[in-house]
Nucleic acid binder design. Structure first.
Lengths: 192, 192
DNA sequence: GAATTAAATCGATAATGATCGAATTAGTTA
DNA sequence: TAACTAATTCGATCATTATCGATTTAATTC
């Protein structure tokens, strides 16, 4: 997590992920109310309602206005709609996974399929795992450099004897490209 | 609660109100993933991830597609945006408080201020409570009927001797209206 | 058919949170 | 100043749930 944006999003969801708090928001959508009034309507003790309201205030969905010697709570409709609007954008969700270790699975597969010499003990039959292996081996090719088929095979041979399969899969998965018919290969750089 | 719409809303919030589940959604926003992959990325056991995914599936935010002999999970972006859009409408929130006892607070105030004879022991000084009392006493007037000031006082006297204050407050709070200067009063019907 | 693999389910544990009553705070009325 | 009122905070209890390891299920590979 770590991310400010995402923490706010989490507080937002936590605030609304409880039945009585949803009801409180529904009541405040009609009119401003004091703790005592909400407590009577929901048949809860004022201390309980106070606790619920603290979640809503912390999420910025509700504000308290002192009036004479009690507090009147008010729904911040704009804050709520702002959050909802933010949910409609794709970047918001991707940011939630900002600090996740995206390569952890690949490393796990590599660890299982390579011996102490760094060579592949075998080629995975599973699609997922083959992809992880391919993303690993493709790193021996420099972006922007052209390689002959012989050079490609030499480099792939460091990992496994079946260089033909590796080469074909690399092209099929779009990690490398080949000039039509000729012997020129190069690494494709992903846009991620 | 009881309400289908609201229950779905609650499941939606519950599904997203947990840090690791938010991260899973963020990961699935990039690409479809299998349980094992997610588990490696988040450094959690597959059983834990499976549990989290069941919440997301139940909320309709994620779907599972069997592929060879494992499951590939997919983010239902449209379902998520549909929920977000629903949040932007006011009716959705009001529906959350559909089955709440809106008059519970008023009854509580009336109970505290009336004696066994049904008369008011005193008039509340607090604004909130006075409003509750006024909503109570105004019910002795029929909607659509016009009353002289004398008739108004007679009816209010059933509740308290200070009929002048009650009459003035009823008009001030918009619960009754008076014809300019003349002695004609009538009950105002609220739109709620 | 036997061994392997991914995922789900189950049982247990530890952490979080919903709720209440009691005590405290702060502002109000008399 | 004293008594009152609304709200918050505190301490305790009970329910929910996040997590793990072990077991089970189902599909795959050899």
């Amino acid at each position: 997590m770590e991310n400010d944006q995402t923490l706010a999003l989490l507080d937002f969801f936590k605030a609304l992920a409880e039945p009585n708090r949803l009801k409180i928001v529904g009541l405040l959508a009609r009119e401003d109310l004091a703790v005592e009034q909400i407590a009577a309507m929901l048949n809860l003790r004022p201390s309980t309602v106070s606790n619920h309201l603290s979640y809503l205030v912390h999420a910025g969905l509700v504000s308290a206005r002192p009036q004479s010697y009690y507090n009147v709570y008010h729904l911040e409709v704009t804050a709520l709609q702002e959050m909802a609007r933010r949910l409609l954008s794709h970047e918001t969700l991707q940011a939630a996974a900002a600090d996740v270790d995206l390569d952890a699975y690949d490393r796990q597969v590599i660890r299982n399929y390579t011996g102490p010499d760094g060579r592949l003990k075998q080629l995975p039959s599973q699609f997922k795992k083959m992809q992880a292996v391919l993303r690993y081996v493709v790193q021996v090719f420099e972006p922007g450099v052209r390689y002959s088929e012989k050079e490609v095979n030499e480099r792939l041979a460091r990992f496994h004897d079946d260089t033909a399969t590796l080469r074909r899969e690399l092209v099929e998965q779009g990690l490398m490209a080949r000039e039509g018919g000729g012997g020129q290969y190069w690494r494709v750089v992903s846009e991620d």
